[in-house]
Computed example of a mutant assay.
Amino acid sequence: MRIDIVGSVASGKTTLARRLSEKYQVPFYEKDNIVYARTSQEDIRRTKAERDVLFQEIIGQKDWIVEGSPREILRESFITCDYIIVLDVPLHTRLYRTLRRWIRQRIGTEKYNSKPTLEFLYCNFKWVIGYHQERATLIKDLAMQSDKIYFFKNGIEVERFLEEYF
């Protein structure tokens, strides 16, 4: 099983990847953690060479799930995966989830990779809206993989779909 889950910030990618990983006993990886080395002090951007080596190690495995925004630099997984799952969650839902996540992180009830500052909240809103504006380009780019791309409104739909095949 090799799955690439793509979508906007707050579309449910990480939650879905984690659930599928547990259910099917397949490792999952966050694309943000391929681009950045996480430390207790800060996120450090990996060099292109480090990032590429790490990504090749991941997609060279027999089974994997990767999730993240559809970064151009990490699209090789589209070619090697069995399924490209696009979480196509409505804009208003993603904006609400972004705010809810930020509040939970600020009060300490949800863990975070990046410190939940007002600036970070602004960046997340910007990324949510940016993804919404660039969605048509993403779909066009994914057209070359049309035999393996599937659009879903939520993780429950994805899980039902995969149960038919695994």
Rank of each mutant, 00 (worst) to 15 (best):
residue 3 I to K: 04
residue 91 L to F: 06
residue 4 D to M: 06
residue 83 Y to P: 07
residue 98 T to S: 12
residue 151 F to H: 08
residue 145 Q to P: 00
residue 105 Q to Y: 12
residue 133 Q to R: 08
residue 94 R to N: 14
residue 57 E to G: 05
residue 58 I to R: 01
residue 24 Y to E: 02
residue 56 Q to R: 14
residue 29 Y to N: 05
residue 12 G to C: 01
residue 3 I to P: 02
residue 116 P to N: 15
residue 145 Q to R: 00
residue 58 I to S: 03
residue 74 L to E: 11
residue 50 E to C: 03
residue 83 Y to M: 11
residue 131 Y to L: 05
residue 145 Q to F: 11
residue 61 Q to H: 07
residue 57 E to L: 10
residue 166 F to N: 05
residue 73 I to Q: 12
residue 3 I to E: 00
residue 42 E to M: 02
residue 139 I to V: 11
residue 41 Q to N: 09
residue 103 I to C: 08
residue 76 E to F: 00
residue 69 S to Q: 13
residue 100 R to C: 00
residue 45 R to D: 00
residue 28 F to H: 12
residue 2 R to Q: 15
residue 112 Y to I: 10
residue 132 H to K: 07
residue 14 T to S: 15
residue 56 Q to A: 13
residue 100 R to I: 04
residue 162 L to S: 06
residue 13 K to N: 14
residue 66 V to D: 02
residue 161 F to C: 08
residue 82 D to P: 00
residue 79 I to Y: 15
residue 15 T to D: 12
residue 99 L to A: 15
residue 78 F to S: 11
residue 104 R to P: 00
residue 114 S to H: 11
residue 34 I to Y: 09
residue 147 D to Q: 03
residue 57 E to Q: 13
residue 50 E to A: 08
residue 69 S to P: 03
residue 58 I to A: 01
residue 16 L to H: 01
residue 97 R to Y: 04
residue 161 F to Y: 13
residue 128 V to S: 06
residue 75 R to T: 13
residue 66 V to Y: 03
residue 161 F to V: 08
residue 67 E to F: 02
residue 120 F to T: 14
residue 35 V to D: 09
residue 21 S to I: 01
residue 41 Q to M: 03
residue 137 T to M: 04
residue 49 A to V: 13
residue 64 W to E: 03
residue 150 Y to F: 15
residue 148 K to L: 10
residue 70 P to W: 04
residue 51 R to G: 10
residue 165 Y to M: 06
residue 53 V to Q: 11
residue 141 D to C: 04
residue 15 T to S: 15
residue 76 E to G: 11
residue 160 R to H: 13
residue 155 G to Q: 04
residue 160 R to V: 10
residue 12 G to Q: 01
residue 107 I to S: 08
residue 148 K to W: 07
residue 105 Q to M: 15
residue 111 K to E: 13
residue 74 L to H: 06
residue 89 V to P: 08
residue 110 E to W: 01
residue 15 T to W: 08
residue 122 Y to S: 14
residue 18 R to E: 11
residue 128 V to D: 03
residue 23 K to W: 08
residue 147 D to V: 05
residue 18 R to Y: 01
residue 108 G to V: 09
residue 87 L to M: 02
residue 135 R to C: 05
residue 144 M to I: 08
residue 146 S to M: 00
residue 84 I to A: 02
residue 122 Y to Q: 14
residue 9 V to Y: 05
residue 20 L to N: 04
residue 160 R to F: 11
residue 85 I to A: 05
residue 164 E to H: 14
residue 120 F to W: 14
residue 112 Y to A: 12
residue 42 E to A: 07
residue 60 G to H: 01
residue 25 Q to N: 15
residue 34 I to V: 15
residue 87 L to Y: 04
residue 41 Q to S: 09
residue 3 I to F: 04
residue 98 T to Q: 09
residue 157 E to L: 06
residue 150 Y to R: 13
residue 3 I to S: 02
residue 19 R to F: 01
residue 118 L to C: 10
residue 145 Q to H: 12
residue 144 M to E: 11
residue 111 K to L: 04
residue 91 L to Q: 06
residue 43 D to F: 00
residue 140 K to I: 10
residue 70 P to G: 02
residue 130 G to H: 07
residue 158 V to L: 08
residue 7 G to T: 01
residue 71 R to H: 14
residue 112 Y to K: 05
residue 155 G to A: 06
residue 146 S to C: 07
residue 149 I to E: 07
residue 5 I to V: 06
residue 85 I to M: 04
residue 146 S to N: 12
residue 71 R to S: 15
residue 141 D to M: 07
residue 126 K to T: 10
residue 26 V to K: 06
residue 65 I to H: 01
residue 155 G to V: 01
residue 130 G to M: 08
residue 113 N to V: 13
